[in-house]
Structure formats: C-alpha cells, structure tokens
Design a binder for these strands. Sequence first.
DNA 1: CTAGGGTTAG
Length: 612
Amino acid sequence: MQASVPVRAPTWVSQRRLFQQKLSELHKCNNLNELKQLHALIYRSYLHQDPFLSTKLITSYSNCRQMVSAISVFNQVQTPNVHLYNTMIRAHVHNSQSLQAFDVFYRMQCNGVWPDNFTYPFLLKAFSGPSYISVVRMVHAHVEKFGFYSDIFVPNALLDSYSKCGVMGVHAARKLFWVMEMRDTVSWNTMIGGLVKLGEVVEGRELFDEMPERDSVSWNTMIDGYVKGGEMDAAFELFQRMPERNVVSWSTMISGYSKAGDMETARMLFDKMPVKNLVSWTIIISGYAEKGIVKEAIELYDRMEEALLRPDDGTIISVLAACAESGLLGLGERVHVTIERSRYTCSVHVCNALLDMYAKCGSLNRALSVFYRMRSRDLVSWNAIIHGLAMHGNGREALQLFTGMKQEGFAPDKVTFVGVLCACTHGGFVDEGIHYFYNMERDYGVTPEIEHYGCIIDLLGRGGRLNEAFQLVHDMPIKPNNVIWGALLGACRMHNAVELAEEVLNQLVKLEPYDSGNLSMISNIYAAAGNWDKVCDARLKMKNTGSQKPSGASLIELENEVHEFTVVDKSHPKSVRIYQMINGLSQHLKKDGYTADEILKENYSGSLGGSL
DNA sequence: CTAGGGTTAG
C-alpha cells in the first residue's frame, strides 16, 4: 500500500525538543524499549553522570523490574550523592531485595556519604515483619545517634516498622510514640493501626478518642480494627459517625460484612456507595464467590468488565482464591480468559492462584498445564501442585513432583510436607509417609508441627495401625488438638474399634463438648458394633444439647449453577435420572467385586462429601 | 511515613 501522506524527516531541532521532553518525564517511563533507547541517547550525549538523570533512570529501571540495569546505571556514577544512594535503596526495596538495600545503606557510609532524613523511611520499608525487630532497633539507634528525629517522617517510619514486628515491636512503638516530641496525625494513625492489628482494639480506641485531629485515615483504621475483630456493630457506629466517607471506608465495611457471612448487608452497601473502584469490586465479587453464590459473582464480574475496569493482580488472585475455595470452575475459567486476553505474561502469584484454582476444582490436567507453562516457579507453585495432586488421589505423581522440586534446587518447607504426607495418606503409602515424617527434620530442617502430626496420625489410622497412632499421640511433644483426636476417631470408625473410640471421645468432648459431628461419629461407631443402647445415649445427648449435625453435602457446579446434594436427597429436578446413573455405577462396581464400604475405606478422603 | 482486596497448609 502506498503512503498517502508524505513522511517528513524530523528536523534536528524537533528531535532535540522531543528528547528533552522525554527526559523530563523519564522517571515515569514504564516501557522498557523506550527506556533503553533513552538510556542510549543519554549515554551518547555524555549525560550519564548527571545526578538528576541517573536518578530518574534508576527509578524507571526499578519500576520495570530491571535491577541489573539499575545497578549498572548506579555504578556508572563516580561520586554518587545522598539522593542517588537513597534512590538506589528505594529501588532495591521496591524489588523486594532488602539485603541489597541494606548493603547500599552500609556502603554509602563507607564512602563518606551520610544518610539524611529520606534515607531512613526508604530503608525501613524493607524491614517490615516480625523477624526484623533487631534490624529496626539498629536503625532506631542510628537515627538516635545522627539526630534525625526533627523530621517527623523519620520517627513515623520507625513507628510503622516497629508496629509490624508483633507484640514486642508494638511495645517498642508505644514507648517511642510517647517520647516523641512532635506527633502529627500520621503518628497517631500509625500507632492506632499497630495496636488494632494486634487485637488491642480498646487501647486503639482510647488513642483514637484522645487524638487532637482525625482525618479519614484515622477513622478508616479504627473501623478496620473493629471489622477485623468481628465487631461489626461498633464498626458501623463509627462508619455512620465519620464526617466524610471515602471509597476505603465503604470497602472496609463491605469486606467486614462479607467476612461475617452477611452478603445482604454487604451488597446493600456496595450498591449504595457513590464511587466504586477495583478494590470494592474485588471485595464483593470474592465475597460471593467464596460463599459459592455463583450467579451474583458472575453477574458482578460481568458488570465490572462492562465498567471497563481492568482487573489487576490483586483482583485476579483474590477472585481465583475464592473460586478455589468453593469450587467455582466456571468463574475461574472466566478469570483465566481475562488473563489470557489482557496480558502477555503474568506474575508468579497470578499463575499460582490459577493453578491452585484448577487443582482445587479437580481439573488437574489444567492445573498441570499452567504449572508446566509458567515462566518461573516458586515454592508456592510447587506446594500448590503437590498438594493438588495429593488431594485428588494422584499420590505417586505428587511424590514425583516432590523429587522434581528438590532437583530444581527448592528447599521444601512445612507446607510442602503437609502435601507430601497427604500424598502418602491418599495414595496408601503408609511406610513411605512414616519415613518422610521421621526424617523431615534431619533431612530438610523442617520441624514437624501440629499439622504434620495430624497428617501422620491420619495416615497410621487409615492404614489400620491404630496402636501406633495412639502411641504417637501419647508421645508427641505438642498438645493434641481436635484435628488429631478427630483423625483418631475417624480411624476408629473405619476399623470398628469401639473401645478406643470411647477413649478418644473422652478427650474430644473436653475440647469441643457440643460438637455434633463427634457425637454423630460415635453413634455410628456404636451402631456398627450393634450397641444400640449407646447409640440411643449419643442420639439423646445430641437432642438434649440441641446440637444437630448439619448433613454433609456434595456440591457440583455445572454451567454456572451450583447443585447441592445430601444423603437420600430427592429434591433435585433431575433426581430420578441421577439415581439411575448412580445405581448403574454401583452395579458396575459390584460386578468388579467392590462394595460401598470398601470404596470408602480405600478412598475415604472427605472429598466424597455426602454420599448421593 | 498512616487506611480497603492478594497465591501454597489448617
């Protein structure tokens, strides 16, 4: 095709003007190719020593996750000033390289450049977490020594970092807060936030009432404190009283009602809120999806797309996790389509959420396909796929992947071993599981925790090795919880061990006296043993305590609709056809020499739910 | 420097 408009060669002047304009916005550049071109031009123009330009280049490379380039720009500068060092620290922090950030902090001082009031807030961002309290203390001492208290940003950053360091940290934050000579609204907000995150809502409220001026962050922080503590009434009271509600205030309330299971109120607020953003949509959609309310979830997902809001990683991960939880394969696939359409590559986190969704929904082939096609895999990816395979009876494959992850140099963690033990349980590899359990600490430095004891006791119990299971519960260094006793009780039921079951029940009633599941389990055990007096006792107790066991249900999602079935359920419109199919299946099974109980024994994973 | 959604287990 011929060009209808003649292309005019750009003049030197207009090129230069363009270059200068590009340079002024260099730090906002997020296109890697363009960034490289500009970098080349800068280099050719001998401008790479320019402190302003190199700072902007580092920021851009850091935003494009190109730390190698960022570092090389930094190294080109012969005598970096404090601003450049600060930029480099921030770049490392932004790319979660906290050790490297600290290294820059150290090197700048070796080179005789002293940190300024910007350095500390950047540096402290890298060390937020309970394990970093000693680092924060050290930085605090540094601040004390160099006297940067005068800039309120510095002690505020310290407050924030301390308050993220658990109980000890919040104690230090409290002390610092009260000795600070100046406190602005951010200081108060940070302190309140630290307190309520640890569950100290009452103390947080005292500060909230005491502070001289409250901004929207103060109100939202306090509301979230109540929300996280499940005190929705107190949260609502503040929500109504606050002078100006913004999108965060509404979202916090919606998230609270959703977590409390009150989707009606959540939805009412969502419809009422004047301005919605990605986060508010995410909260309401995942709320519905988590509870298996597919229709509303999909409807809102459509409406979000119609509103031309592009889901970000947070939305995608959150919705996929909700789909995984309640097995909404349909919506999960919709989200997958969105991902494929909108991005060329996606982050490890998004892929992990996707593969986990497919695995939990039972679509192992697609889970594996996501897993193998991922550009890079992290520990979470391996853990998710191993556990996914294990849960669905592919124990051998799960263990093969366990070998694979070690070959690729990943160190298994405690989550991995939950998956590995689960694989052994569901694959029936009793001795192999015992071997992993007893050697995980020696071979991989992972100390067995209560979850692992739960797995191994389940494994022994299902394998019929009840005595060993009981012995282990007796010998274990951790106090057994209801999961452990529950696993034993299940094993007793499976192997008709009436006396042992009574012993377990005695322990279990201490922990959860009115749990209907336990009573119903023991009643089944007595029934199997023909001890009808005891069956009556148990039934009576259930009646007296008013606890009725909610019947187990199987949920199947078909074409964006969830179908629920309970035992001998005939309410489904197509139930005649369904039972015909089931009878056909059981006849096939019988012909092959299986009885229902045998199947249960071999494949009793809880995933069968209520038998149809 | 402070507020809402965020992947693996239980």
